[in-house]
Design a binder for these strands. Structure first.
Lengths: 235, 235
DNA sequence: AATAGAAAATGACACAGGTCAGGAAAAAAG
DNA sequence: CTTTTTTCCTGACCTGTGTCATTTTCTATT
């Protein structure tokens, strides 16, 4: 995409920043060696669960390739926290005193390659390399900023605004194109926007009828981004 | 409170963990000296704003004494992220590359004493003391866990559950008693639970009529905690 | 103590958005 | 290619919650 609106994407974004995590560059060669020895690389097929909320968090994950959803499990409906493309660290928030379980579940949308890093080693490296630790904190803070934005969005905006928001974010942050094939189901969009599947369908049809987007099955094209942004803004 | 239910407070808690931040204990005497020289202590009166969302984050704050609300500003309604008692660091999430503004606003409920720490110095100390940085990361992760819980709560539960949740948390985490005087207005409770002020009032009256709580003005007493927890659970 | 202003309470009303049931289309499995 | 399963779509209905207008109670200030 020629990034016409990249700079002022709503903070209520669906997705983690596309920020190729260069945190490992801050490690010394020896430290990289230590890390590598305690890391295994695993390939997951589409739809597989990489980690399950509540299980022991024995590793931090680095998504080398793929696309995943990070979500809180609920009954009957989950809450998708973010859609995360490659280059992201996953599972870091599980690291704090008195907790040793994953805060969320992670499932792939496409075949994905994940580096599973032993959490003890990861901690160890943070404790011996302040720059690295600081970098991780930065990443987490960025993540927090995004979560706050979404939190606000989902609790304050109406359906229209929330859906417009998500579509803009998917386009701008994940697929980097105004036209893309959605790997997410309507149900996923619902869990991402905090609305029922039926509402997602209804609203998307409405937006199609209003000429804001083009729709055919899984393929979506944003036609009138300025108006979508207006809708996102006004809630 | 004799902590009958302290251990299994809902994760959707209103409040930051009562965790007397001993992060500064990890600093060397020299580092403490550096910190102290770049810190000023300021007393705020009730209702004053300690930091304003969007302004330059020139310092990290440590709440030495008092009680504050941390919130996202919105029009026409804010979203209160947490109620925070003394012993907490505030403003850390503002620290990340490409950002230099506060993510949220903070306002006091009672007279509060705040240590204003120069942010550059704070960063500096994190970069030179890995244990310190790691500790801060831990605190932030704990905070993230809590935010996720609230996020889930506000997007998935109904009014009854959300209100029960908040009352339990205020009782368990902030006031440490089943009976307490609320410094928050009904409007604040609304911004904390993502509902209108009128709904707060209606529901609290209902809970009073049902014998779940006792109410007289600002004074609240939780009478039937098990049932409140059930309500919180069922949404 | 008196006045003004804010906060709390209450009732009437409206509608956004969830739920449910059923059917069409698409994808996966055999 | 057929069968099965999942996803997508539609319409009818209904209830949870917000909005608005008004009154009452509390709090603060002169």
């Amino acid at each position: 995409m020629d990034e016409p609106y990249e700079s002022n994407l709503p903070t209520s974004s669906c997705a983690t920043h596309v920020y190729d995590s260069p945190c490992f560059a801050l490690l010394t060669p020896e430290e990289k060696g230590i890390l590598d020895r305690q890391t295994v690389t695993i390939t997951y097929k589409k739809g597989e669960t990489i980690c399950k909320q509540g299980t022991f968090a024995s590793n931090v994950m680095f998504l080398e390739k793929g696309l995943v959803k990070i979500y809180l499990e609920g009954n009957p409906k989950n809450l998708i926290l973010t859609i995360t493309p490659s280059g992201q660290l996953i599972g870091v928030p599980a690291i704090y005193d008195g907790n040793n379980t994953f805060l969320y579940s992670v499932t792939t949308y496409v075949e994905s390659v994940v580096k599973m890093i032993d959490v003890a080693t990861f901690k160890q490296l943070m404790l011996q390399n302040a720059s690295f630790a600081y970098r991780i904190l930065n990443l987490m803070n960025e993540n927090t900023a995004q979560t706050y934005g979404r939190f606000f969005c989902l609790t304050q905006k109406h359906l229209h605004g929330r859906l417009a928001d998500i579509l803009i974010c998917l386009s701008g942050r994940i697929f980097k194109s105004l036209e893309f094939d959605l790997p997410l189901s309507r149900n996923d969009l619902g869990e991402l926007t905090g609305m029922s599947t039926e509402s997602v369908i209804r609203l998307m049809k409405e937006m199609k009828d209003d000429g804001l987007i083009e729709l055919s099955g899984k393929s979506i094209k944003l036609v009138n981004v300025p108006r979508l942004m207006k809708i996102s803004e006004l809630g």
